[in-house]
């Protein structure tokens, strides 16, 4: 089942399928390790639509909800 990364639950593990959106923001996400095929785990989602903390290939990263909404993931 595919969904947007912004819909992931705490501790949920997913595989990145695709990145959508404009080039610049995709480029930045890719540099942080958000590549198709990568395994991500949601560490935490801050309240009031705040940023998300994710663990991706051994790294932890914080991104905004709007960025996460551009990433399509599949439940592992």
């Amino acid at each position: 089942m595919t969904k947007s990364m912004s819909e992931m639950m705490n501790n949920e593990e997913c595989v990145i399928k695709a990145l959508e959106g404009d080039n610049l923001s995709c480029e930045r996400l890719i540099q942080l390790g958000f590549l198709p095929g990568a395994l991500v785990t949601l560490i935490s989602k801050l309240p009031f639509n705040g940023p998300l903390a994710l663990s991706i290939s051994g790294t932890k990263v914080a991104i905004r909800l709007a960025d996460a909404a551009q990433i399509v993931v599949q439940t592992a």
């Binding site: 923001s25 930045r28 996400l29 942080l32 940023p51 903390a53 790294t59 932890k60 990263v61 914080a62 991104i63 905004r64 709007a66 960025d67």
Partner: peptide
């Protein structure tokens, strides 16, 4: 909202 972004590695 396009002028402000936020991505940060958490060490």
């Amino acid at each position: 909202s396009r002028d402000t972004t936020f991505q940060l590695e958490l060490p």
